Amino acid sequence: MLTVLYSGESDLWPVYEPALAAALREAGIAARLVLPGEATPESVDYIVFAPSGPVADFTPYRQAKAVLSLWAGVERVVGNPTLTQPLCRMVDEGLERGMVEWVAGQVLRHHLGLDRHITAQDGVWRNDQVPPLAPEHGVTVLGLGVLGRACATALATLGFRVTGWSRSPKDVPGIACLHGADGLNEALRRAEILVSILPDTPETNGLLNAETLALLPPGAVVLNPGRGTLIDDAALLSALDAGQVGHATLDVFRTEPLPPDHPYWAHPHVTVTPHIAAATRPGSASAVIAENIRRGEAGEPFLHRVDRDRGY
């Protein structure tokens, strides 16, 4: 029987314990689920992990075959020098669907100009502006990993002119795919609505700064459900004040929770959502964990294994 250690947030254990147990049974895996202290480290076969959990030193878990993250982002653990086991990030149906729905909803909100009507409930009948149709707007998605590809495809299905950008070449049907530094500049120039779903790496930190924001069409909308480190906050606030960026809807931030005195809260052209775009759902996440354990026991490649050199 395998020993699977849960090292996630303790308050979520009552939810994850039955979900993981059910997923393991369905996958035909005999395993006992334990918390830190309930088994010797050398007896642990797999670690179900979140950076907010109790395990930070992986050295005692020398027999563990993989560390299976419950989070999509691995920037807080990938550089841990004690982590020598394979590391797999979380990509699951619930997380993917949540991201697609948040992105599609926010893109449609800005595309249709819904804020204008929501904030003007004053009895005046304003029907002088017909909403545009999707092909009239160019949307750029930065990042064409699993989540970015899903969002770009959904937006293209709605009829938007979608450009996707990634560091390396990608081919996504229905998407104009660009890559590299020159490709980034062109992707930004096309972005009447810009969606960032990039990981947090040294290369992406501060990618949206004064220079790159200036490449956007005047009045462009910025949506960031990816990583807060992507944005130079001072540069974005300056671009908003100048009208270069018309509105920013932000779900992730350099400091979370976003401090109450942060300028984003009071800015009239910023919408803050509290990191809800791509939450991990225990049911669907547990199925991914169980499948990776099955793969590990069968000698098959793990799903979503992290490339340590790239950081994701």
Rank of each mutant, 00 (worst) to 15 (best):
T163N: 05
T163K: 04
G164R: 01
W165T: 05
S166I: 12
S166Q: 09
S168C: 13
S168I: 08
S168F: 11
P169D: 09
K170F: 12
K170V: 14
V172W: 12
I175M: 10
A176S: 15
A176I: 15
C177S: 13
C177E: 13
C177W: 12
C177R: 07
L178C: 10
H179C: 15
H179Y: 12
H179W: 15
H179G: 12
G180N: 10
G180L: 06
A181S: 14
D182L: 13
D182I: 10
G183P: 02
L184V: 11
E186L: 14
E186C: 13
A187N: 09
A187L: 09
A187P: 12
L188V: 03
L188E: 00
L188A: 06
L188Y: 07
R189C: 10
R189A: 11
R189P: 11
A191L: 05
L194Q: 07
L194S: 00
S196V: 12
I197P: 09
I197S: 10
L198M: 05
D200F: 11
D200H: 14
D200R: 13
T201V: 06
E203C: 06
T204P: 06
N205V: 15
N205W: 14
G206N: 01
L208I: 01
N209V: 01
A210L: 05
E211S: 11
T212V: 07
T212M: 05
L215V: 06
L216P: 01
P217W: 04
P217R: 03
P218F: 13
P218D: 15
G219K: 06
G219N: 08
A220E: 05
A220N: 04
V221W: 03
V221E: 03
P225H: 05
G226N: 08
I231H: 05
D233S: 10
A234C: 03
A235G: 00
L236C: 00
L236E: 02
L237E: 06
L237C: 02
S238P: 11
L240W: 01
G243R: 00
Q244G: 07
Q244D: 08
Q244N: 08
Q244K: 08
G246L: 09
G246I: 02
G246T: 03
H247M: 13
A248G: 04
D251F: 12
D251K: 07
F253K: 08
T255L: 11
E256W: 07
P257G: 02
P260W: 08
D261H: 09
H262E: 06
H262C: 01
Y264M: 07
Y264L: 12
Y264W: 11
W265E: 05
A266N: 11
A266L: 13
V270T: 10
V270C: 13
T271P: 15
T271C: 15
V272G: 14
P274G: 12
P274H: 09
H275E: 11
I276N: 12
I276T: 14
A278N: 11
A279V: 15
A279S: 15
R281T: 14
P282L: 00
G283R: 08
G283W: 01
S284G: 03
S284K: 01
S284C: 04
S284L: 01
S284Q: 04
A285I: 02
S286Y: 02
A287T: 09
V288P: 03
V288I: 10
I289W: 08
A290I: 04
E291C: 10
N292C: 07
N292V: 06
I293K: 02
I293Q: 05
R294P: 09
R294Y: 05
A298T: 13
A298C: 10
G299L: 08
G299K: 03
